[in-house]
Design a binder for these strands. Structure first.
Length: 885
RNA sequence: GGGUCCGUAGCUCAGUUGGUUAGAGCGCUUCGUUGACAUCGAAGAGGUCAGAGGUUCGAAUCCCCUCGGACCCACCA
């Protein structure tokens, strides 16, 4: 940061300052709560949702960083011990896939390299590309503590994850079992429910004869061993069949089938009867468990048919479908085929391969086992997750998402946490040749050949522990998880964190998992408030995507308009939980605002005798002084309240309104007049120094108020004001303006209104701007005095000379704020007539309301009174207009 | 099938617990530039608050329905 008045360029050039300012902040150490000046007791903590280590900054990141930085900077100015923990995510599947693609260019697969070498390649790739995202986070002005930067696959996190696995296993919450899972044959991995996408596809729908009933299916290749018919218990058609055993001619010869009654059968659908395929359908699997039916695997992990398919064994299931149907046709089992069948095909969210539901051995977290001590009693993870939000320990902004959250938790099934991916946290389980199992981080010392479970953990298992694992000190050997957590100072100081800010799209993926894992691991909530932001869309409301080419690169925008402008464009007009639209004109608009702020400051700094910081409210000497101070104090109160309520957009809008419309458009113009001795009215006591103090006080306060939103430009101007290059004089560690008493200055409003009314009349009557006209103002004595006292304002701002001459018959008359103004210009009869009509209509409506007995009876006294005042004022105005026109 | 959100000026959006002659920014029209800023200033045009009904003295705001749009969850044997 340079300093000297010459360096205040005419238009603010963000590129000239931003990098230097960021470096200054970072080297000051103030991003680190331990190095903040002053006594700071209360902590304020945010864990940054970690962007992918190998990714690049997009608008989603930009808006998340802007929001979090605003909260952090505001709370830092409020004197809190502020910590924002940055980090990156190893993004297991995504990163592994990228490296697999890279090595595929050399014609290699991960299996060619082997686990160790492949993982080395991945780590190298991550290390090479991680600086990109780090520097992009800096570009946004993020005031996060880089000395505490975390990584989801760091040694610390790995240790936490493995220890947690072991503890949960000991508590009986983690178990291994056969379950039906979503399986991607291409990735050779299970997928979580939310990693499965649905695609509408057209295909064949087959109707087969199955003994006494007809069954319909889109997947004949799974039905070789369907041996159970389910009918609804109240279905009269099948009443006699329930419980019977039937021999039925089927795909590979006769089979023996049983009939079972269950409400799962829909009487309205098809024939009202169905057969089930437990190993390849979620619902059928549940039914099979409920009725204790055999579960037989027809399709294997490679997507091939097993021995149960007889002659089709070994063939790809999907490809064999038509051959199987051909055979069934020959056997006379096909009733009809609907070729226009539309259904939702489940596909892998990463590679679009159709998902096979199949049975496999996986690790699970039980959400229903009551094994966790919470609020004095043993509860299940599900119960705790519901309780913390219901009892308001955690509040979600906006709170309509509570409903969605509850619904999701209530329907939560056991969570499959094993993934057949190499890049990730390895499951700490070992097996030997005798099929014994040991749960431990390192290889068991007992005799035998021990092999570690090849799987890794679902990435949400580790990110679920993000808020506290990132605060732990480096692990030591031979200490328990509890001991480790206890000795870590940061955990004690900064956990639970205050706010978790993220997009509503990962409420389930992440927020819910953090609540589950942290209430378990820490016996406390991970955060107090969840702030959910919406998605950033293009001007038409479409998602931004590469294929549409409608994406906006935040870094381009920073280059063009500056970080402050980009931040504002992402914040203003965006409300929590709702999507917002971004387009370049919007960013340009905020660039204009930042420039306005710059020029306001430049004006104040260059017009005062000596720029300096003033934090004590100076004494007002003129009415305008009184008014602007009152407006400033009102603004401070409003902005503070908005920020406390997480209403960032409203806070910024309140500030913009004050800055541009009140300060720049009115007060600065008036200050020019009132500072000029040649225009000095008989106001007494008004001198330049008093004005200087007020201007500097306002600027001091304004820079603090804007700092969370536009950190760069405010820090740059602050430097000019403070004249200091010391770290402790940086704006980032200043203190937030206090709330001060204030009351509206209505006298000033009156003057403003009269000036506006005269301007309007001048414009409508097309009076040349250079033409200073005479005006006669008649008013009650008190108002008359006020007007005379401020006559220089009318002369300069409304370009009229106040006069005593009396020529009401010839002048153009305006009614405003109970005052009659006669302008020495020809009467505009038409204009006056219109004015009268408008007033008459308004009066009629008011009279109507006031003559309504039920309004008088029912409405509160204050409302009635207000209406009466309105009427009186309007009638007064009408009377004068009529008399003088 | 269950649920959520949205529909206010040409465009993007505010409108807090029902009480304004319904607001802002951009765009548009007219006028304006002798040192804070043309990335600017002054003034203006433009809305039956998606539609119908209800509650109320009073509805953009609360309730119900209809239409239109976005999204989430579940799922079609």
């Amino acid at each position: 940061m340079k300093k000297s008045k010459e360096s205040l360029e005419k238009a603010y050039e963000p590129k000239k300052h931003e990098d230097d300012i960021y470096k200054k902040w970072e080297s000051s150490g103030f991003f680190n709560p331990d190095k903040l000046p002053g006594k700071r007791k209360n902590p304020f903590t945010i864990s940054m949702p970690p962007p992918n280590a190998t990714g690049t900054l997009h608008l989603g990141h930009a808006s998340m960083l802007a929001i979090q930085d605003i909260l952090i900077r505001y709370n830092r100015l409020q004197g809190k011990k502020t910590l924002w923990v940055p980090g990156t995510d190893h993004a297991s599947i995504a990163t592994q896939n990228r490296v697999e693609k890279l090595i595929a260019e050399d014609g290699k697969t991960r299996h060619d390299l082997g686990r160790t070498q492949f993982l080395q390649e991945v780590e190298d790739f991550v290390e090479d590309s991680r600086d990109t995202i780090r520097n992009q986070i800096r570009k946004m002005g993020s005031s996060c503590d880089w000395t505490r930067e975390a990584y989801t696959l760091s040694p610390t996190l790995t240790k936490v994850v493995q220890e947690t696995f072991i503890t949960m296993h000991n508590d009986g919450i983690i178990y291994r079992g056969d379950r039906i899972v979503n399986w991607c044959p291409r990735c050779a991995s299970t997928l979580a429910n939310d990693e499965v996408k649905h695609k509408t596809t057209k295909g064949n729908y087959y109707y087969f004869k199955y003994g006494p009933i007809t069954i319909g299916t889109a997947r004949p290749e799974t039905k070789f061993l369907d041996k159970t018919i389910i009918v609804h218990p109240e279905d009269k058609r099948y009443k006699d069949l329930v419980g019977k055993t039937l021999t039925i001619p089927w795909m590979n010869g006769d089979i023996v089938a049983h009939v079972i009654a269950d409400t799962a059968a829909d009487m309205e659908e098809g024939t009202g009867a169905m057969t089930i395929t437990p190993a390849h359908s979620f619902i059928d699997f549940e039914l099979a468990q409920k009725h204790n039916l055999p579960i037989v695997q027809i399709i294997n992990e490679k997507g091939e048919l097993t021995g149960h398919a007889g002659e089709f064994a070994g063939q790809n299931a999907n490809q064999a479908r038509e051959k199987i149907v051909e055979k069934m046709k020959r056997e006379g089992l096909v009733e009809k085929i609907n070729t226009e069948y539309e259904h939702n095909l489940s596909v892998c969210y990463l590679c679009d391969t159709p998902v096979e539901p199949l049975i496999s051995k996986q690790w699970f977290i039980s959400v229903d086992t009551k094994a966790v001590e919470w609020k004095g009693k043993k509860q299940s993870l599900k119960e705790i997750a519901l309780d913390v939000v219901k009892s308001n320990d955690i509040s979600i902004v906006p709170n309509r998402f509570n409903k969605t959250y509850f619904h999701w938790i209530e329907n939560l099934h056991d969570w499959c946490i094993s993934r057949q991916i190499w890049f990730g946290h390895r499951i700490p389980v070992w097996y030997n040749e005798k099929e014994e199992t040991e749960i431990s981080i390192s290889k068991p010392t007992k005799e035998g050949t021990w092999k570690q479970d090849p799987d890794t953990l679902d990435t949400w298992f580790s990110s679920g522990q993000w808020t506290f694992s990132t605060l732990l000190e480096s692990p030591k050997d031979n200490e328990t998880l509890t001991q480790w957590k206890k000795r870590s100072k940061d955990v004690k100081t900064f956990h639970p964190t205050n706010v978790l800010e993220t997009g509503y799209d990962i409420l389930f993926f992440w927020i819910a998992r953090m609540i589950l894992m942290t209430t378990y691991g820490m016996k406390e909530i991970p955060f107090e408030t969840v702030y959910l932001h919406g998605m950033v869309r293009d001007k038409q409301g479409r998602k931004m995507s590469k294929s549409l080419g409608n994406g906006i690169d935040p870094l381009d925008m920073i280059k063009k308009y500056g970080t402050d402008a980009l931040r504002l464009s992402l914040i203003v007009g965006a409300t929590p939980g709702n999507d917002s639209r971004l387009y370049e004109e919007k960013i340009a608009g905020y660039r204009n605002f930042v420039n306005k702020l710059w020029n306001i400051s430049r004006f104040i700094i260059t017009s005062v005798q000596k720029p300096k910081i003033i934090t004590k409210t100076p004494k007002p000497t003129t009415l305008s002084d009184e008014w602007i101070l009152s407006q400033l104090h009102f603004t401070i109160e409003k902005v503070t309240n908005h920020l406390e309520a997480f209403e960032l957009s409203a806070a910024a809008e309140t500030l913009r309104e004050f800055t541009w419309n009140e300060l720049a458009d009115w007060y600065l113009e008036i200050a020019k007049i009132e500072k000029d001795p040649s225009h000095s009215p008989p106001v007494g006591g008004s001198d330049g120094a008093g004005k200087d103090d007020i201007l500097l006080y306002i600027l001091t306060s304004l820079l603090k108020l804007w700092h969370p939103f536009t950190p760069f430009v405010t820090e740059r101007i602050w430097n000019e004001l403070s004249g200091s290059t010391k770290n402790e004089d940086l704006l980032i560690v200043e203190s937030w303006p206090e709330n001060k008493k204030h009351k509206p200055v209505t006298d000033f409003k009156t003057i403003q209104n009269i000036i506006i009314a005269i301007r309007t009349a001048r414009a409508e009557l097309q009076v040349e701007a250079s033409n200073i006209i005479d005006a006669v103002i008649t008013a009650k004595p008190a108002q008359q005095k006020l007007i005379t006292k401020n006559q220089n304002l009318f002369e300069k701002l409304a370009r009229v000379t106040l006069s005593n001459k009396d020529y009401p018959q010839k002048g153009h008359v305006i009614q405003e704020s109970g005052v009659t103004i006669t302008l020495h210009v020809p009467v505009n009869k038409e204009k006056t007539k219109k004015e009268i009509e408008k007033l008459e209509k308004y009066i009629k409506a008011l009279k109507n309301k006031l003559s309504n007995a039920s309004f008088i009876d029912n409405a509160p006294q204050s409302i009635v009174q207000k209406e009466q005042e309105k009427l009186a004022e309007a009638e007064n105005a009408l009377q004068k207009l009529k008399a003088l026109s």
